[in-house]
Design a protein around this nucleic acid. Structure first.
Lengths: 213, 213
DNA sequence: GAAAGATATGAAGAATCATTCAGATTAGGA
DNA sequence: TCCTAATCTGAATGATTCTTCATATCTTTC
């Protein structure tokens, strides 16, 4: 939609001294802060640099353009979340559906709330930067992870396992996102934390067939 | 039900001749087209005007600024969706949980796919324009509608009806959104259409049973 | 401690964009 | 037909933004 440019999105140079590593960290941090404090529309290179306590030029030392910076941040976030889910999946492999459902929901909530600040900020980037592709990738990945998990559950006998995995991925990702995006109260969160596992569980059991008394 | 429109976001003048009504329609249409074709980052007043076949000045005759235009479009979309859901709710009042669950899911999917072009475009605006408030309002509205429906279901005896309504709203809104945002195939849609009603049904039944065991 | 390389600076250039307004064009009634 | 109000025009304005590059400062290495 917007701009593909995969090669151009990579960082310009890799840090070699500790100094520059700290700089990059500060820039990342500042980007998220600006995003949350001022909104994506006011996310400018100057503002980020200012907040990070560095010069604009410094940022261009590491990223060829603004998009590359945004891409790096989104990518890192996605990676973090995915790592957490992979770990959860490994831990849950071979468990019963009930355990899998609750485990997945809890792991997802944990991962998202742990990185919530970044999460909320990132949901707002969609403008200068096309998130569609990244989101689609994440969605597909999650679906696969879940499908594998379902295949390994001893009490699973789904007619259409992939469809169920797809729906579960949409359910997890979507509900948490929607809630996060709408300035949720603590109560909203508590509610989600209680109900989401139940919903996942109920759906999995129902989809698994009536033979489950 | 969309009253709290900030004063500054309201249209500047109301069309009085058929000519101008057509112009406004063209501008709305063009905005969505530009949004889909070029992305939110390249959504400029000039581009919209050009695509609509009018002058930039014309747009400023009806909207005091770009944000007002965006707001109008988002608001109109939300209104459309909400009207559809209200109608569905009325139709479903007094039905059993099974009927309510499936009816809600189907109505939501119908409404979203009917206006899918606008839907997808709007999901991309979040930048120049803070959708948080609008989304939060929509979420709250949906939750209330669902809660009322649940209260009217003869076989319902939820311990925490509001929590269930909240979760169901998040489930509906979120899953459809996530799927729509990730360049879905027809197959993905078919899948959602089949599984979402099931998921809603399963959750409602499960949440209803837990209450008095 | 001095050269070499890495990192940081920030004013200046070039591009883009939202918004205005004075004047042209068009529609509808008398 | 003619007049008035509604509608439209689009170059000009001013503000904001991304990006560059010549220069300065710091680190490491020998």
């Amino acid at each position: 939609m917007t701009r593909p440019a995969p090669a151009l999105l990579k960082p310009r140079k890799t840090p070699q001294q500790t100094r520059s590593a700290a700089t990059i960290g500060a820039i990342h941090e500042a980007t998220i802060q600006v995003l949350l404090a001022e909104g994506a529309g006011r996310l400018t290179t100057t503002r980020v640099a200012e907040r990070a306590g560095v010069s604009v030029g410094t940022m261009y030392q590491y990223y060829p353009h603004k998009q590359a910076l945004l891409y790096a941040i989104v990518d890192r976030h996605l990676q973090t979340i995915m790592d957490a889910m992979m770990a959860a999946a490994e831990r849950l492999t071979g468990s019963d559906l009930a355990v899998v459902a609750e485990g997945l929901a809890t792991a997802w909530l944990d991962a998202k709330t742990a990185d919530m600040v970044a999460s909320r900020a990132i949901y707002a980037i969609a403008s200068d930067f096309d998130l569609t592709e990244v989101m689609a990738r994440g969605m597909k990945l999650m679906t696969n992870v879940i499908a594998t998990l379902l295949a390994a559950a001893p009490d699973a006998r789904f007619a259409r396992r992939d469809a169920v995995a797809f729906m579960l991925a949409a359910m997890l990702g979507g509900s948490v996102r929607v809630v996060m995006e709408s300035s949720p109260t603590d109560e909203d969160f508590a509610c989600l934390r209680q109900e989401l596992p139940r919903a996942c569980h109920a759906y999995l059991v129902a989809a698994n067939g009536v033979a489950d008394r």
